[in-house]
Design a protein around this nucleic acid. Structure first.
Lengths: 250, 250
DNA sequence: TTTCAATGTGTCAATACGACACAATAATAC
DNA sequence: GTATTATTGTGTCGTATTGACACATTGAAA
């Protein structure tokens, strides 16, 4: 009746999909893990469907695990995209139909309402892995002009907007940076997400006032100029802040 | 295939529903418009399904219009509830089956993923109207202990939490108060949403600093004690604040 | 006319914030 | 080695914002 299968292995709910905006931070740029379709010259967000006995969150974790190899990830639903027109003319349908894959292309060729999730991951820990219909999986910088299928550009923009709003109340950074990092690295991350420069000294004063960072007796060597101290997140206070929220904005 | 009908008039998408937490403010209490099922002694949130050529938002506006009689309403999606167990043992299914209604009870008896919306309306303007399976539609105070079907209590709590977070960045109040109101009324609304007391004088200073209110040359007569001035929202600045957001928290 | 609770409007100190200065340092250039 | 240079560490200072509180005013009720 209302349950369909993509292949013979698993049954999914019709009409509902999810798309993940997986953010990484590298070389001072925010990047989004994207699937590339060589024949279409188009990118797409990693996504999936909801198994008949899964929650959205469980399904999203499966997508993340498959594309990144990572488990414990900061994951948050941020918006539902339900425009009547949004999944019309999905170029992937034709691609699937033409392929020899043993999957049900009818399933793809229905109207989908998609739940957007954003995830924050540590760039270097990710092992980008394409799915069965994409040719490659790679990081795409938000600074590049990239063509995505359907409304995926819109989804990314909305994800970034949500991330910005979160930044004002939650201690984002733990998930995007390596365990040890310099104050400059954290500040550049904030600047990148916000899209504006922040005063180096005022930033440090404010972020330290939240008591979510430990200053280490260790410096980052190797770079030119004075070696900066390394910091790490104070997990105990970080978790408290996740619950209670921070205050003030940037 | 994947489209079902509730009655013969309209086709809906399977597996997807929406529920509306319609907030009103009356006698210093936040209230939620709820449907009551006499035979079950249970309440439920007004909800609906997504027509095959509607967006979620369009469908939500239809629900609001039908239950309140109002059009232009502040409406916002805030969370998707997708637990596998959430729509098991829906008491409404049995109720529908037993009734003589010409509706397809099979449609109700499927797994639903529901999108939660919250709406802010002016209490006195609402004309509460039950739907075809409920016995009455009434305001329920958040202070009362009320039994809701399924996970609707959880949905209300999450809506209130979202509303609180919005309060810090958006000029909420325009939709919940009459056109003209006193500073105390606005403050009590904020106190009610936040669940804590605010200093009367500091509140006024802060809210006035946003420039979203016009102080009128008019006083509320009739109450005991000194007559307070009336205020109204400055729509131009209010809309600006809706876009730009406010700053600071309470 | 008095009472009393609520209102209008202020002050004050503590804190937070934005803008900025200057010395210390580590790799590089010479 | 020594000088150079960009970056880092750590301040200060004036202003704006915040929280706590005081006191006179008002208008219905006693």
């Amino acid at each position: 009746m209302t349950i369909s299968t993509v292949n013979t292995e698993k049954s999914f709910l019709n009409h509902i999909s999810l798309d993940c905006v997986i953010f990484g931070f590298h070389e001072g740029e925010l990047r989004v893990l994207s699937l590339f379709y060589e024949s279409l010259k188009l990118y797409a967000l990693p996504g999936g469907f909801i198994g008949i006995n899964e929650s959205l969150e469980e399904a999203a974790y499966i997508v993340l695990k498959e594309r990144t190899g990572l488990d414990a990830i900061f994951l948050k639903q941020f918006h539902v995209f339900s425009d009547f027109e949004r999944s019309k003319q999905n170029p992937l349908v034709e691609k699937i139909t033409k392929s020899n894959a043993t999957i049900n292309s009818d399933f793809f060729d229905q109207r989908f309402i998609t739940v957007g999730f954003y995830a924050l991951v540590e760039y270097t820990k990710v092992n980008p892995t394409p799915d069965f219909i994409s040719d490659s999986c790679k990081w795409v910088s938000l600074n590049e002009k990239i063509d995505f299928i359907l409304d995926h550009s819109k989804i990314i923009n909305k994800a970034l907007q949500s991330l910005r709003e979160q930044l004002n109340s939650q201690p984002i950074g733990y998930n995007l940076l390596p365990d040890k990092f310099t104050m400059s690295e954290l500040r550049v991350l904030y600047e990148t997400i916000l899209g504006k420069e922040l005063d180096r000294r005022n930033f440090q004063r404010k972020i330290m006032s939240y008591n979510i960072l430990n200053k280490l007796n260790e410096r980052r060597k190797g770079g030119a100029h004075k070696s900066p101290f390394l910091f790490e997140f104070n997990l105990e206070n970080y978790k408290k802040a996740l619950n209670d929220g921070l205050q003030g904005g940037w």
